[in-house]
Design a protein around this nucleic acid. Structure first.
Lengths: 197, 197
DNA sequence: GCTATCTTGAAACGTGCGTTTCAAGATAGC
DNA sequence: GCTATCTTGAAACGCACGTTTCAAGATAGC
């Protein structure tokens, strides 16, 4: 029978994610992928297809591995506003320090590129947005039950507001926006939703 | 003496702005610029330098011609919160309908690209951010004087919040975020700053 | 261990990129 | 109108891109 693959496609895809994430899709050539993964072009193309399909696979992996676990944790957190505050603290920390500092968010970055016109890419971005909003809404509804919100605050539109704020954090952090300023901004947003007293 | 240019460099640059804005920098080739402007490569290179310098010039023109007038109008508007509401109404309208629908914002898009690592590009993005924040802060301070704000709202951090929100609008609108949802989100943000009664 | 089947390595594919070149064309001063 | 000087047109530059090809190598069933 046939030979088997001499590499781990999943581990390889993780390497590709980091390339596209850090450098951007357009600035990352197939040669870069070959260099970083150690794969041969034959293996690359027979496994993933071409560059566009590789990008789509990387984008999906990013959402599944990076975004969704954080969203789920937020949605299941029973603390309400403190859960949201922690979510943003973690976000800003990841965006401004450590290994991925100034990389932004692969999904947010994808919005700005020419790839966002691609139908399949667009679907991933929409799914990501919906899941982010859903998690934030869950946390806000918990906060409402706990009496943490002002009467005026609506969980649905509040969730979309915080989602757009997260995109803003992702965008500005990639261009060097500092953590202190971002944290202060997020705190102001949460304060504006908080019940007096 | 010498010959003079047979074209208007400023009008040409406006054409280039629209190319980079709509398609993205990476997806726009020099050939696209040649086709759209009718210029010869010789004239292009002798006037602007290379592609990177052309992009920088376009980015500067965008900020000067598109952003700054709107910022200035906002800063000088004496109505307070209604001025901010109009600012966002105009933004969302421009981003979701008409000629530039789904183009996003050239500056926001630049944040996500590999160009945001360029020092000169970064400087333009920082200047844009600072000017946007300043205009929003002026309007918020007017609102404060008019008694339109809650006591908890701080003009400085409120301005940064609204600025990040604007980036969020720019990002999501490029990927097809609908106007109604964006308007609802912005209204929620402004409601959260508004004084009760 | 033979063989069918898939994977891998290395090279080359054609295309389009950003950039340069330079002769021909156009202008303004004398 | 001659000339010095800049602009323009057209072609070519070398290079890197994404992709394809195919023989050599590796595997699992018989």
């Amino acid at each position: 029978m046939a030979d088997i693959k001499h590499f781990d496609p999943d581990a390889t895809l993780e390497t590709v994610v980091r390339l596209f994430w850090k450098q951007g899709v357009a600035a990352t050539g197939v040669q870069d992928v070959v260099n970083a993964t150690g794969l041969n072009r034959s293996s690359l193309y027979s496994t993933y297809g071409g560059k566009q399909q590789l990008y789509l696979a990387a984008l999906n992996r990013y959402v599944t591995v990076r975004s969704q676990p954080v969203f789920q944790q937020l949605a299941e957190d029973e603390r309400g506003l403190p859960a949201i505050a922690d979510f943003f603290r973690g976000l800003i920390s990841a965006r401004t320090s450590g290994e991925h500092a100034r990389w932004g968010c692969l999904v947010s970055n994808a919005h700005a590129g020419a790839e966002s016109n691609d139908q399949e890419v667009r679907a991933v971005l929409d799914r990501h947005h919906q899941e982010l909003c859903h998690a934030l809404r869950s946390a806000l509804e918990t906060a409402r039950r706990e009496g943490q919100l002002t009467d005026a605050a609506d969980p649905a539109s509040g969730a979309e507001l915080l989602a757009l704020l997260a995109y803003g954090v992702n965008v500005r952090s990639r261009a060097g926006g500092d953590a202190r300023s971002l944290r202060r901004t997020v705190d102001a947003a949460l304060d504006s939703l908080r019940a007096p007293g």
